[in-house]
């Protein structure tokens, strides 16, 4: 099924408004589309289906499908776009141009209903505690929580204060703790990557 590979045309001299030589991508594909489609429907899909059916029959559905979901989930984490205290500055810096957390598929969303990751970035007071729980409950399953910084991890310097929750794990289950006061953006990216490891190894 070798196609008719077109030989590149001789380069014409550029002059005036002449757009120049035609780009190689703009030409006909090396293999005609009809042949690719026929190959896909008649050979590849039946073969893949058969292989997948055999694999599921042998190892069970959960074991085969779960890694696919984990792979998709860990590469498209959507953290809630909010800030509680000074850690939010580092949170913002991590999504800026220099550290660019989006290259790990992490994009902050402004609505908890579109999120699966809550990064608690700052001191949690008792006043804001029930709002935090509300936001957490609005997030669809499956969802994860990262406690960013010493305050969210254990209350930090305000641990015995009259108004501060001594660790956000008193309110919601936490998956990854990031130390620092505040953690640098590199530490935050490290925490996100560790969370991605957790999701990769998720069994259920």
């Amino acid at each position: 099924m070798a196609g008719t590979a077109s030989t590149p045309k001789p380069v014409a001299p550029v002059s005036g408004s002449d757009p120049g030589p035609e780009l190689p991508m703009a030409g006909q594909p090396a293999v005609p589309f009809v042949e690719i489609e026929a190959l896909r429907t008649q050979q590849f899909i039946p073969a893949a289906k058969e292989a997948l059916t055999d694999l599921i029959a042998e190892q069970g559905q959960a074991k085969v499908i779960r890694p696919v979901f984990n792979w998709a989930g860990r590469n498209s984490l959507f953290p809630l776009h909010w800030g509680l205290a000074c850690c939010a500055i580092e949170f913002a810096a991590a999504f800026g141009a220099r550290w660019d957390a989006e290259r790990f598929g992490v994009v902050p969303r402004s609505s908890p209903r579109q999120c699966d990751l809550m990064i608690v970035n700052g001191t949690v007071t008792w006043k804001v505690a029930h709002k935090l729980i509300t936001l957490y409950e609005q997030m669809p399953e499956p969802k994860w929580v990262i406690a960013m910084g010493n305050c969210a991890t254990g209350g930090g310097p305000f641990r015995t204060a009259y108004s501060v929750v001594p660790g956000v794990d008193k309110l919601v289950p936490v998956d990854v703790y990031i130390a620092g006061c505040p953690p640098r953006p590199e530490a935050m990216l490290d925490g996100i990557l560790r969370l991605e490891q957790l999701i990769r190894d998720r069994k259920e």
């Binding site: 008792w126 505690a129 029930h130 209350g155 641990r159 015995t160 204060a161 009259y162 929750v165 001594p166 660790g167 008193k170």
Partner: peptide
């Protein structure tokens, strides 16, 4: 007269929030 509380104690007393 207010004493700094142990975190656990404070948590129990304000749990209903």
């Amino acid at each position: 007269s207010f004493k700094l509380h142990e975190p656990e104690e404070l948590e129990v007393k304000t749990r209903h929030v």
